[in-house]
Design a protein around this nucleic acid. Sequence first.
DNA 1: CGCGACGTTGATTTGCCTCAACGATTGTGG
DNA 2: CCACAATCGTTGAGGCAAATCAACGTCGCG
Lengths: 196, 196
Amino acid sequence: MYSEIDKHLSRNTFISEGEFELLHSYIRKRIVRKRGFLLSQGEVCNFEAYIVKGCLKKYYIDDKGDEVILQFAVEDWWISDIGSFSEQKPSNLFIEALEDSELLVIDYANKEKLFEEVPGLERVFRMMIQKSYAVLENRFYSSIAKSAEERYLEFVKKYPAIVQRVPQTQIASYLGITPESLSRIKSKMFKKKPAA
Amino acid sequence: MYSEIDKHLSRNTFISEGEFELLHSYIRKRIVRKRGFLLSQGEVCNFEAYIVKGCLKKYYIDDKGDEVILQFAVEDWWISDIGSFSEQKPSNLFIEALEDSELLVIDYANKEKLFEEVPGLERVFRMMIQKSYAVLENRFYSSIAKSAEERYLEFVKKYPAIVQRVPQTQIASYLGITPESLSRIKSKMFKKKPAA
DNA sequence: CGCGACGTTGATTTGCCTCAACGATTGTGG
DNA sequence: CCACAATCGTTGAGGCAAATCAACGTCGCG
């Protein structure tokens, strides 16, 4: 049950057996059923969740009442509202399971304690978030500079697994376009280059 | 000369006199004249820079040869290409001074050493980047879900000082619209609600 | 079995871009 | 110190990518 997260966290830094045990004592397992919520708007996000199995989405509801999907997350990813978590203030976001999911969660207090007792992990988490920051920057660059079609192609290339697992409507929302537009983009692509 | 950065870094964590001195020995002052470059495309970003005085922009050049501005930074902010810095690989970005600027910079090796010797600062920097992440997330949400006009209003509200200091063309680039569009947006706003 | 979610397609609208021209301001070299 | 160039902001005309509104077939789930 812990093997994946252990491997995930020790990718760049040595962590001893004892430290792993400490880590395990600070995290707990959590199951969320399809359509279940890990976080709802208005709550303080009190966790960072590592996904052992399953698929979730993070989104907010815009003025028009539509979902705007910000992130999909599958196995071996983390999901959280970092802003809400790190400042311990209410979130505007929802995190909802798209499939039955199995998570390992750590809460704010335990994360603090863990860093005190295993300083090496503070480094690991700092590097993780630096990496996330760079990824988000790249996504941001695409979103301002590229057309809907380019963004879709990029998405398919980057996350082929998610394209399989998630309905098209939701991918459209993630890309910031309407489902109708995505449908048209796909049919146009298909005419141009009949499958690879 | 160090008073601002000391205050900045000790906002959330206690740092002793001796630790501050260590910090000062690892950073160095740097002056960049208006239109001077702190980073150019192709270089590895080997610094994180704290702005004591001045104003800079970070941008890349898109396929059409246009500047796409990703960040403005003024006094008491940090600027760097985090992706390039943390992975020590070439950057796609430029960082250029919009005014004569005075910076305090720390390079990769010194930052590592500093964290080893003052673990409390690892925490400070982790929190800083978490904060930056949250800010970037918010900006990203706006860019996919909001109209040009909404984004401009948001910008004016959030960074009134920058609106004063930076030409409109550059703000347009930051907002992901053309200067012409921004001009029209402003004139339309002015008709609707003749100043506040 | 029936209802709601999903995907597709068509007609129309719209927000923003592109291209172009022009006046005002800033900065610079002779 | 002036002249000229470059930068900046504005305005107009026309075009295009994607949104909106609407209708319809399919599928899977309760």
